[in-house]
Simulated assay, not measured.
Amino acid sequence: MTLKNQAFFATGAVSHDLRAGIEFIRRDRLEAESAPGGTDDRFAIFAVDDMQLGGWTFTPAVRYETQKLDGTGTFLPQDYNNDALMGGASLRYEFASGFAVFGSLAYTESLPILDDLGTPVFMTQPEKATTWEGGASFARSALFTEGDAVRAKVNIYQTQIWDVTSYSAVGQIEMEGIEMEASYAHDNSLYVDFNANLVDGTETSVTGVDSRWRNAPADSAEITLGKRFGQAWDVSWELAASEGVTTSTGDRTPGFGVNALRTTYRPQAGGIWEDTEIRLSVENIFDKEFTPYLSTRPSPGRNFKVSLAKTF
C-alpha cells in the first residue's frame, strides 16, 4: 500500500514539484521444497522534488526502507532486520536554442529476499549499486521548414553492482553503454524515428575472474519511416536489428534484422467512432527465423495483427 502526495509550490524564484509518500509492503509465503517460507515486512518513506529556476532543473530524491524477515517451518526462528538509505540527484540545463545537457548519480540497495533464508550470510547483505548518467538533448520546431520538428537525445550510463546475492559465485557486475534516439517530422507529414542501445557488461566472480555479464543485452537499433495522411491514416515501415553475441563460454547467438509494416486508421466521423483507433500490422514480413539473445524460444514467423482501441 502506497500513500503519496504531489505538491506544487515556490520558494522565491525556485518552483517545486514535490512527490512524497510512505509505502507498506508485506510478503507472506508458505514453505515449499523449492523455496523457504516466511514473511517479509517493509516500511519505506520517500521524496522526489523537481526544482526549476530558469533553464535549470535540479531533482534530488531520497528513500529510506526498513525490513523485518521472519522464517517459518525449517527456518524458524531465523529473524533478520535490515534497513537502507538510498537516493540520488539529477541536474539539467536547457538553452534557449533547444539544446540541453543533463547528468545524474544514484545509489540504491536491494534488501534481502525470502529466497535467501537458507543462506544466513545473505540475510544481512543487501545488494548495492551506483549508477551515473550524462548526455545531451535537442528539441526544436521550424528548424528547416515552417512546420517541421526535430528531437534528439544521447545518454551515456554506467552501473556498478556489488555484494551480489542474486547470482551465485558473482561478486560484482558492471554495465556501461550509450542510448541514442532521434526523430524528425516534416510539415508534409513524413516522419522518421530512430533509437539504438549499445551496451557492454562485465561480471566478476568471487575469485576475481572477469567475463561477459550473462544478462547484458545485445546491441540493438530500430528505425521507422512513416507518413500521415490527414488526421485519419498513418502508414509506417519499421526495421528492428540486433547484433550477434558470443558469450564467454563460446555460445553464439546470431544477429538479425526484422521488418514490419503498420497501418493505423482513426475514424473522424465522431459518434461511437470518436477516439477509436484501428491498427493493421504485418510483423516479420519476410518470415525470418531467429531467436533474440537472452530468449529461450525462437520468435514467431510472419505475424498478422488487427487491433481495435477506444479511449473513453
Rank of each mutant, 00 (worst) to 15 (best):
N5D: 15
F8L: 15
A13K: 13
D17T: 11
R19Y: 04
R19C: 06
G21K: 08
F24H: 15
R27K: 12
R27N: 13
D28C: 10
L30W: 04
P36K: 05
P36F: 06
T39H: 02
A44R: 05
A44E: 02
I45E: 12
F46C: 10
A47T: 15
V48G: 08
V48P: 01
A61Y: 15
V62K: 03
V62G: 09
L69F: 05
G71L: 02
G73N: 10
G73Y: 01
D79L: 07
N81H: 12
N82G: 07
L85S: 06
G87S: 09
G88F: 01
G88Q: 13
S90T: 11
S90F: 03
Y93R: 07
E94V: 14
E94L: 14
S97R: 06
F99T: 09
A100P: 04
V101S: 00
V101N: 00
V101W: 00
L111F: 02
P112D: 01
V121P: 09
P126F: 07
P126V: 05
A129C: 08
T131L: 09
E133S: 15
E133C: 08
G135W: 02
G135Y: 01
A136V: 04
F138E: 01
R140D: 03
A149W: 00
A149K: 11
R151E: 09
A152E: 01
Q158M: 08
S166T: 09
A169T: 14
V170H: 04
Q172H: 10
E174F: 03
G177C: 05
S183M: 04
A185N: 04
D187S: 13
D187L: 03
N188F: 08
F194H: 06
A196G: 09
D200G: 12
D200Q: 15
D200R: 13
T202H: 03
V206E: 09
D210H: 04
D210W: 00
R214S: 14
A216S: 12
P217D: 05
S220Q: 13
A221D: 03
A221L: 08
I223Y: 03
L225K: 06
D234W: 07
D234F: 06
T246V: 12
T247R: 12
S248Q: 05
T249K: 14
D251W: 00
T253K: 07
T253V: 14
T253E: 03
G255E: 04
L261F: 13
T263F: 07
Y265C: 13
A269V: 11
G270S: 09
G271T: 05
I272Q: 06
D275T: 09
I278A: 10
R279G: 11
S281P: 00
I285R: 05
F286N: 11
F286M: 06
D287P: 06
E289R: 11
E289A: 14
F290K: 09
P292W: 00
S295E: 10
T296R: 14
P298V: 13
P300Q: 01
G301C: 08
N303G: 03
F312E: 10
